[in-house]
Write a protein that binds this DNA or RNA. Structure first.
Lengths: 343, 343
DNA sequence: CTGTTAGCGCATTCAG
DNA sequence: CTGAATGCGCTAACAG
């Protein structure tokens, strides 16, 4: 070791020379091409691998991509990488991607449309084989530019559908509805919601579920009890809870549109001297690890993030290997209410 | 939209044809080459860009990489992507990488040496421009294979040093020492530590700091009070705390080698009916968001993760643009004890 | 069963 | 100031 950087990197030609065969043969044994009218003797294989080891040869994926039009690259485009939700998704995606020997690049858009658009270009430049998109702003046309470029795309959530893009999602409305119904069953009548932005699908859908639940039980909705906040802003949950607590008639229960929000709200309530769930019950959404790291533990809607991620990759893989023009598929992942202590 | 996938992607040749110029010119204007004996008329520039827009041209980075030997790719190699620590690091790295128009691939090694070695090969194949490594097992020789391949490397932590690889770290020993000293100052004499694996640098170094602090105050170390656990295993912190609590003479304070461990331990103590910090004080390490999401809030050593990440990328960038053979540099990032409620 | 050869799309000398 | 020609390293016809 300790030598100065950068000697010339060996090429397949070097390997061929050393092994005393042609580059074709090298390529064949390295890619283990045994099909067709190709048969390589054990002896030759051995020699090639020997040369590979000796030279410490690693094929250049740039050259390979150029030739094969496959990059073995997946992209994951998400609004944020900060904990807790998206890293879990990323982990699941990575894990599944490994099975196909795919690397994954994560693009964090900060929820800004311009950055999303920019990334679209990057994706095409890079020639990624597939992309998983979690976005609230991209249009069908944007997606189409990817599809046109031959990139497989699956969309995380119920966002714009494209004839050749798949969706992986959970039934947001129903899930939210179940959560709120649970609250109603517990006897709550005055239920607030810390909702996500109306501009996002998740925000809109979960609020819809909330409203559905109320309506189903004949409880009138009250604008005062709906507080729309940003999903990712620091302290957003506290903001909502604060608003509720300062009402002349505060809610006895709160449905927060994410665990992040819920935990934030919960802590605010606690710090305000209230007991949870006695003074105010709280229910979250996602079931991220934080849900069990607060006391009382958070009652929340469990989303199977792992399964979301792996399913997304599987869909991608199917499209990549073969079915470029499969019709759009919608995969609904199960969810369930996890009752813990906060409600 | 709604067309079926994949039309032939336009190349720089197509752009040239449409603009009525040569590919050379296209390349020049796209890469904004104005130096040397190259001067392109405003008029020509305009025409080229027009053609680019018209055709929706995106240069192929595979071809470009093949030619330029630069991939504009950074890699981040970490033991886990799960929350909370590494996603924060990843976020910081990403953010800084954007300034250089670099994408970043995250490799999660699950702390397994074999996977680390495998990734080394992938890195070389991909021809990443630089890599940030957080590993406990890789040797100087392993690092060298990267350097030889012309890849810039910076190491996260105090791990093996290589003549041409940089380190970004905090003073683990001193930080740990400060934390434990704080406990001693508060009057604690019987202090336990939930330590990381002896096999990891972080584990070893933080334990060293713990021992130093005790020694400095003449407090004898007690094997019983040192509990070595895995950094990432679920419930590792609880395990440690459980062991301490079942001692005939339990510690009155505990120094945990990470927030993750600390929070876990804290919750276990709480759930066991103890009060923190009255019955047992707890202090963590890292200052991740969870530290403020538990009650009592966690007293902990603040690590400037953002700065760690961005510094790492800056070092990489310097090496990539120019100084391939700069001597190894060691960047020490500041830390500080954040006193909250748990100790 | 193995070797020869022709590009993949781009950046870049070197002439004009 | 711009164009023609070369090759980066690899895969895949196509011949032997």
């Amino acid at each position: 070791m300790a030598q100065r950087p950068t000697r010339r990197r060996p090429t397949s030609q070097d390997v061929a020379d050393l092994a005393g065969v042609s580059v074709t043969t090298v390529s064949f044994v390295i890619n283990d091409k045994s099909g067709g009218n190709v048969r390589i003797s054990e002896e030759t294989r051995r020699k090639v691998w020997e040369a590979v080891k000796a030279l410490n040869y690693r094929p250049s994926s740039a050259a390979r991509s150029l030739r094969t039009k496959r990059s073995n690259l997946l992209a994951l485009m998400v609004p944020h990488i900060e904990p807790p939700y998206h890293p879990l998704l990323a982990a699941a995606v990575q894990r599944e991607a490994e099975n196909g020997n795919l690397d994954v690049i994560i693009y964090s858009t900060r929820d800004e449309l311009q950055r999303e658009k920019d990334f679209l270009d990057v994706l095409i430049s890079r020639g990624v084989d597939g992309v998983i998109i979690h976005s609230h702003q991209l249009s069908g046309e944007d997606i189409d530019s990817l599809v046109q470029a031959g990139i497989a795309v699956v969309i995380h959530g119920n966002t714009p559908t494209h004839p050749f893009a798949d969706n992986v999602m959970i039934d947001e409305v129903k899930a939210a509805e179940e959560a709120v119904s649970y609250l109603i069953d517990k006897g709550h009548r005055r239920i607030g919601t810390i909702a996500g932005p109306e501009a996002t699908w998740d925000g809109r859908l979960r609020k819809e579920g909330y409203l559905n639940a109320l309506q189903a039980r004949g409880i009138p909705a009250d604008e005062e009890l709906i507080c729309e906040v940003d999903f990712f802003r620091q302290g957003a949950g506290a903001l909502g809870m604060n608003k509720f607590l300062s009402l002349s008639e505060p809610p006895s229960a709160v449905f927060a549109a994410s665990d992040h929000l819920a935990v934030d709200a919960l802590l605010f309530a606690l710090d305000s001297g209230l007991s949870v769930p006695e003074d105010v019950a709280i229910i979250g959404f996602d079931d991220t690890p934080t849900a069990t790291q607060v006391r009382p533990r958070l009652t929340t809607v469990h989303k199977d993030i792992k399964s979301l991620g792996s399913t997304a990759v599987q869909l991608l893989l199917e499209r990549i290997n073969g079915g470029g023009s499969l019709p759009a598929r919608q995969k609904m992942i199960g969810h369930r209410l996890v009752c813990r202590e906060s409600a």
